[in-house]
Design a binder for these strands. Structure first.
Length: 943
RNA sequence: GGGUGCUUAGCUCAGUUUGUAGAGCGUCUCGUUUACACCGAGAGGGUCAGCGGUUCAAGUCCGUUAGCACCCACCA
């Protein structure tokens, strides 16, 4: 197909037919270019509309979760963005002023790691380049990546307003970051402090608590003897140190035996500043107030008590290393103990006086081995037993975290979290599915301060300047000339950068122009309507956004947070590069087409947000459906818009609406219109409720099972009847158009391709289906009585088809059929639908008769509702086969009859169940009576 | 140690107002009726993990047990 001459409206009158086979790849590229060129993704300007006194259009806005520049398009993005695109396209078609803001994240640590790795291949380190050059190099790299990622994302057919694309490190957003930092600092919500943090020795940076992932590991518990220090002699109680395990615990002899400490990290013992026991632990009463010697360095340290110590763990004796353990740090604070640093920022033992020469500079795990060996040699190692425990790892590089006491910047999160909880309480924000609310609340309720400084070069450098003279800090939007405290000009900017999530936390408003609150986008689109993301990012991102938004903009950044599940591999395992079980979305798009892929993904979404196990064959369904839709569209177009290739086709459909005079419409016409409008109604409801999977299923079902299998099939007949032809054409045109519009949010490409070829109906056609009006149900067409009538007709069709099949009666051979019923409703329905039955079952005639009429001998019967559906057979029927078939049917019905009877005889049921339910059961029972009677009498004749 | 989710047809899974179960794939049978064999028609297949409770009525609500998965937590 070709859209080269743009303005597709001008090209029709005689549009070429759709190609026989859909070339998905070709239309995807072509149509995406068309959309972009026509700037269809930009929010329409409400002011340009002529009648400004009509109800003002709603606004719908959403920001994309910015993908990392280091990443490639993966399944998670595919799902996340498909959902967002469905919402965006739906709202756009509804006429809302719709903005979907795209952009990317500079991904501090991840990006720096990648660029450093690249430098390494050139035998360079970042220090070789220096900060400025390194950052410049990283910028170059990230710009190229941004372009690549945008290209990849476009393969998904998504429709964000690319003109507005943002980057967390671009100028506007950097300004927002500085503004946020300064504001929060001035409010006392950001401060610098020396505190124990999670330190990654490989990244040589602090990371936050949630960037630390804990993993179970098999390790050991070492028990180490700390000899008692003799105050008067200034020495060990026993310089040669002979140790007798029997006398260790509970020893009350004088001199005291060494204290035995249990630890999982012997390499930190050189940094011990005290030993703690539980105050009530009778075993160690005699040691309290004494001093013991740190092994290998013989430094005396006090034995103190603290109820924190668990007497039942290990030996009940805890060593305190404040500089390298979070709990020890807290204990040291309460007991006013000064920390001793023994491990440096690269994870090696420091070159410090407290550390024996031989151990200085050793990598921490090597140091562990060496120290163990030394202790063994000194006979201070009492035992080493296997121990299973959790070890923190760096989220980005899996390096074991070293808790490290260091000077860092922190956000005081408790007051911020409080605002979020209040806002939740006030109903200003909701989660779908609701259960995530609990996690959100739990996390915010016990939140700790957030370490936001990173010892990296790639990121927003902290807008704080230190004074060399007075040590004061000046926090400012712009670089100050002098120190605000002492006017010294000996100042330098803090070298650290901010956590990436600091800038992402501002995303919903920084992208809209904040801190300029008069910016048009901020005014029109903030706060946003919905945020769509995965649960793995609720703490990292969602909660940070709500905290910052409340503190800085005074409102919740979005109304609804839609949380979807994770895409897993077919075994249910998380997809990861290291496991090699990832599926490339682009590959699937190549296989089944973007529309097929998106449809499949969407149909797999559940309202409960279950994880999705994906495999190649699961996306097949979408491909098949795309083909079906394509073929059905070809049929319709062939019959409403003849072409040069197809001169024998019907005259082109006129632009008139479907004849509103119902009487001129056939039963089939009215039925499909009723079903169509019902589908429209449901589709809108489902989308409004974020029920994407059901929306996909609904449309598949309507398109395939109602429109294609019944209406289109029957239209083949109606098109041959002059009196019905025009309405049939109009219905085909309008319902097909509607199907494509309803499906456009999920299948943007095929629907556009077909829409461009459909002749205009009563409404003028839009430039693109993506800005055409989403169908709204016209409820006057919805007719439940009609639906019931048609159900009777179709059930009779099915019964007759069954009979044909049972007896292998070829469809080449027309048959006669009889329906026996006393029900007026059924008789009317079948009279009205006789031609339908006749057409679908290849009938000569359908004879409708009262039920007492005798059934001809040698007949096949089926029971449907209150009808006996009978096909008289000329030949001899297989009596045995027929008997057993009927018997089985009879037995099934009997069982149902018995159950139903029992229920209706239950006084409780009749009295307490809603009347409608009771009535329903009654009528089913009477139906069963008739069916059983029919079956019994037939069985009796079969002898 | 807390918490959440899952257990429904051979497989993968839907099923938010309690009214006796659905889809896709697969299986079996039939069919080249010009939109579609990437199709059409028909069939078979489930004591909804176990146990207990509430209710006239439970896949659906409550409790409990088991298995699986995940999240959170400072026991050295």
């Amino acid at each position: 197909m070709s859209l080269s001459n743009q303005s597709p409206q001008t090209q029709e009158n005689n549009p070429p037919p759709l190609e026989k086979k859909l070339n998905a790849k070709a239309i995807e590229a072509e149509l995406y270019a068309f959309w972009e060129k026509a700037q269809l993704f930009a929010p329409k300007q409400p002011h340009t509309e002529t009648n400004n006194n009509s109800e003002s259009p709603e606004t719908f806005s959403m920001v994309i979760p910015p993908p990392n520049v280091t990443g490639v398009l993966h399944m998670g993005h595919a799902l996340d963005n498909t959902i967002q695109d469905i919402l965006t396209r739906w709202h756009r078609m509804r006429g809302d002023v719709t903005l979907w803001m795209p952009g990317m994240d500079h991904a501090g640590i991840a990006t720096q790691n990648v660029v450093e790795k690249q430098l390494k291949t050139r035998n360079l380190t970042k220090s070789d380049l220096g900060r400025e050059k390194f950052v410049e190099e990283t910028w170059q790299w990230s710009r190229a990546r941004q372009a690549d990622i945008a290209t990849q994302f476009k393969r998904l057919g998504i429709s964000p307003d690319w003109q507005r694309q943002r980057f967390t490190l671009d100028e506007g957003l950097s300004k927002a970051v500085r503004h946020a930092f300064v504001t929060l600092y001035n409010q006392g919500l950001i401060h610098q402090d020396t505190y124990i943090v999670n330190w990654c020795p490989r990244c040589t940076s602090a990371i936050s608590d949630i960037e630390t992932e804990y993993q179970d590991q098999d390790s050991f518990l070492w028990e180490i003897a700390y000899p008692v220090f003799n105050e008067t002699s200034g020495q060990n109680t026993s310089p040669e140190f002979s140790y007798n395990p029997e006398t260790v615990a509970g020893a009350k002899t004088d001199p005291l035996s060494p204290l035995v400490v249990a630890t999982t990290r012997p390499e930190t013992l050189l940094g011990d500043v005290a030993i703690a026991v539980h105050p009530d632990d009778s075993r160690y009463k005699a040691y309290i107030g004494q001093k013991v010697c740190v092994p290998l360095s013989n430094r005396p340290i006090p034995v103190i008590t603290d109820p924190y110590v668990d007497s039942s763990f290990g030996t009940g004796v805890l060593k305190i290393t404040p500089a390298h353990d979070p709990n020890d740090f807290k204990l040291a604070q309460t007991h006013r103990l000064d920390p001793i640093w023994v491990i440096d920022e690269t994870g090696c033992l420091k070159k410090a006086e407290q550390i024996p020469q031989a151990l200085q500079g050793l990598e921490r795990f090597e140091a562990r081995k060496q120290i163990e060996a030394c202790l063994k040699e000194n006979k201070q190692l009492i035992s080493k037993t296997p121990h299973h425990h959790r070890v923190g790892q760096c989220q980005r590089c899996q390096t074991v975290i070293e808790p490290l006491l260091s000077k860092q910047w922190f956000v005081k999160t408790k007051p911020l979290a409080k605002q979020c909880l209040a806002s939740l309480e006030a109903g200003e924000i909701r989660f779908i599915p609701e259960r995530w609310t609990k996690d959100y609340v739990r996390w915010l309720s016990k939140i700790e301060d957030w370490c936001i400084s990173r010892q990296l070069w790639w990121g927003h450098q902290i807008p704080a300047w230190h004074c060399k003279d007075c040590q004061g800090i000046t926090v400012s939007l712009e670089e100050p000339e002098t120190c605000t405290h002492c006017r010294s000009n000996e100042i330098y900017q803090d070298p650290d950068v901010l956590d990436t999530w600091f800038s992402s936390g501002l995303w919903p408003f920084s992208t809209m122009g904040w801190p300029d609150t008069t910016a048009p986008d901020y005014q029109r689109f903030y706060p946003t309507s919905v945020l769509v993301t995965g649960f793995d990012i609720i703490f990292f991102w969602v909660a940070r956004m709500t905290m910052f938004a409340h503190a800085l903009t005074g409102q919740s950044p979005f109304e609804t947070v839609y949380i979807h599940g994770l895409i897993r591999d077919e075994k249910g395992q998380k997809m990861s590069k290291s496991k090699g079980n990832t599926i490339d979305p682009v590959e699937l798009i190549e296989d089944v087409g973007c529309d097929g892929f998106r449809f499949s993904l969407t149909s797999l979404i559940t309202y409960g947000g279950q994880d999705i196990k994906l495999s190649k064959d699961k996306v097949e369904q979408g491909r098949l459906f795309t083909t079906k839709l394509w073929n059905a569209s070809r049929f319709v177009l062939m019959n409403i818009a003849p072409t040069e290739d197809n001169p024998s086709a019907l005259p082109q459909v006129d632009a008139l609406p479907i004849n509103v005079d119902r009487e001129s419409l056939s039963l089939m016409d009215r039925w499909i219109l009723s079903s169509y409008h019902q589908t429209i109604q449901q589709a809108n409801e489902l989308l409004a409720q974020f029920k994407f999977g059901e929306y996909a299923d609904l449309l598949l079902d309507f398109t395939w099972n109602n429109f294609c299998d019944w209406y289109v099939e029957f239209a083949k007949k109606q098109l041959q009847i002059p009196a019905l032809q025009q309405n049939t054409q109009r219905i085909l045109r309008d319902v097909l158009t509607g199907i494509h519009q309803l499906l456009h949010p999920v299948m943007p490409f095929v629907t556009e391709a077909v829409y461009q070829k459909i002749p205009a109906g009563p409404q003028e056609k839009a430039v693109s289906i993506s800005v055409s009006a989403f169908p709204q149900a016209d409820t006057q067409w919805i007719d439940t009585t009609l639906t019931q009538q048609m159900a009777i007709v179709l059930n009779v069709v099915k019964a007759l088809r069954n009979s044909r099949q049972q007896y292998g009666i070829s469809y080449q051979m027309p048959i006669n059929a009889m329906v026996f019923t006393d029900s007026d409703e059924e008789r009317q329905a079948l009279t009205a639908g006789e031609d339908i039955v006749a057409y679908f079952v290849k009938l000569d005639a359908l004879h409708i008769q009262p039920s007492e009429t005798d059934v001809p001998k040698n007949s096949v019967i089926q029971v449907v509702g209150q009808c006996k559906v009978v096909v008289p057979l000329d030949g001899v029927i297989d009596v045995e086969k027929e008997r057993s078939r009927l018997k089985k049917k009879r037995d099934d019905l009997k069982k149902e009859h018995t159950d139903l009877n029992a229920r209706l005889n239950n006084v409780g049921f009749v009295e307490r169940a809603p009347a409608a339910v009771v009535e329903k059961n009654r009528s089913r029972l009477s139906e069963l009576d008739k069916q059983l009677l029919a079956l019994e009498s037939q069985l009796n004749t079969l002898t």
